[in-house]
Amino acid sequence: MGRKEIYTKEQIHAMEMNPYTHSVNAYQITFTLEFKEFFVDQIRNHRKKAPQILKAAGYDPSWFTKGCKSSLRRRILEEADSERGLRAPRGLSTAEQIAAFESKNLSMQKTEASIKELQERIVHLEKQVEFLKKTSNIMTNPTLK
Rank of each mutant, 00 (worst) to 15 (best):
K4R: 04
I6P: 00
E10G: 11
E10V: 14
Q11I: 02
I12L: 03
H13P: 00
M17E: 10
N18E: 03
A26Y: 10
Y27V: 06
Q28P: 09
Q28H: 14
F31C: 03
T32F: 02
F35V: 06
E37T: 11
E37M: 12
F38Y: 05
F39Q: 00
I43M: 14
I43W: 11
R44F: 00
K48G: 03
A50Q: 10
K55G: 01
A56S: 11
G58M: 09
P61G: 02
G67C: 02
C68A: 06
C68Y: 07
R74K: 06
E78H: 06
D81S: 11
S82G: 01
R84S: 02
G85Q: 05
L86K: 10
L86M: 06
S93H: 01
S93G: 06
E96G: 01
I98Q: 07
E102I: 06
S107D: 10
M108E: 12
K110P: 05
K110I: 15
E112G: 01
S114C: 08
I115E: 04
L118R: 07
L118K: 09
Q119N: 14
Q119H: 08
R121G: 04
I122C: 07
K127W: 11
F131W: 13
L132D: 15
L132Y: 15
K133I: 15
S136Q: 14
N137L: 04
I138E: 15
T140E: 12
P142Y: 08
L144D: 12
L144C: 09
